[in-house]
C-alpha cells in the first residue's frame, strides 16, 4: 500500500462479514486498475504473482458505478473459470465502455496460498467519483 495520495494505490476497507476494495488514482482508469489489484490482494499477495497469462476484458454499463461492478465481476468470472490470479491490469474507458487487459498466472496453491474465493462484487459501499483533490476513487465490498 502507498499512502501518497496522487500516486495510484489501493487499499482494503472494513466490512464486518466481507471486505471492501478501493482504488485511488489520478485517472478513472487507474482507479479501476488499482481496485482490481485490491481484489487480487483479498485472495493473495500480488507480489507473489507473475504476469505470464493475458486475458482481454470488455464490458459496458449505463453508468460508471455499474461499470465498476461489471468490471470486478468480469474479473471474478475469469479468475474462477480459468483458475487465474491477476497481478496487474490495463484499463481503457470511453463512454461507459471498458476495454482492459488483465495480466496474471495460474493459481499455485502451494506458492500463492490463496486465502479465499471471491463470490461476487456487491453494490454495498459502491462509489466511483472524483475527489476534491482531483484524484479518482473506485470502491465496493466483495463477497467472500
Amino acid at each position: 500500500m502507498n499512502s501518497e495520495p496522487t500516486t495510484p494505490h489501493w487499499e482494503h476497507f472494513e466490512h464486518q462479514a466481507d471486505i471492501g476494495i478501493r482504488g485511488i488514482a489520478p485517472t478513472l482508469e487507474q482507479a479501476f486498475e488499482q481496485a482490481a489489484v485490491a481484489m487480487t490482494a483479498v485472495v493473495t499477495d500480488p507480489d507473489l504473482l507473475t504476469a505470464s497469462k493475458v486475458v482481454s476484458i470488455h464490458c459496458e454499463a449505463p453508468d460508471t458505478e455499474l461499470l465498476f461492478v461489471n468490471w470486478i465481476n468480469e474479473l471474478i468470472y475469469q479468475m474462477s473459470v480459468h483458475g487465474l490470479l491477476f497481478k496487474r491490469y490495463q484499463v481503457f474507458i470511453k463512454n461507459d465502455t471498458l476495454s482492459a487487459t488483465a495480466f496474471g498466472v495460474a493459481v499455485d496453491r502451494q506458492k500463492h496460498q490463496p486465502a479465499v474465493e471471491i463470490k461476487g462484487a456487491t453494490f454495498t459501499e459502491l462509489r466511483v467519483y472524483q475527489q476534491a483533490d482531483g484524484t479518482w476513487l473506485a470502491q465496493c465490498v466483495v463477497d467472500v
Binding site: 455499474l66 465481476n73 474462477s80 463470490k119 461476487g120 456487491t122
Partner: peptide
C-alpha cells in the same frame, strides 16, 4: 460458482429494472 454467478447476474438485472417496476430502492443492493 454457479450460485455466485446467478446471484451476480440477477442482482445487476434487478438493479437496472427497479425503475421499470416502480420500486424505490433505499439501497441498490
Amino acid at each position: 460458482g454457479l450460485g455466485h454467478q446467478i446471484g451476480t447476474e440477477f442482482l445487476k438485472e434487478m438493479v437496472m429494472s427497479a425503475a421499470q417496476y416502480q420500486i424505490v430502492l433505499p439501497d441498490r443492493e
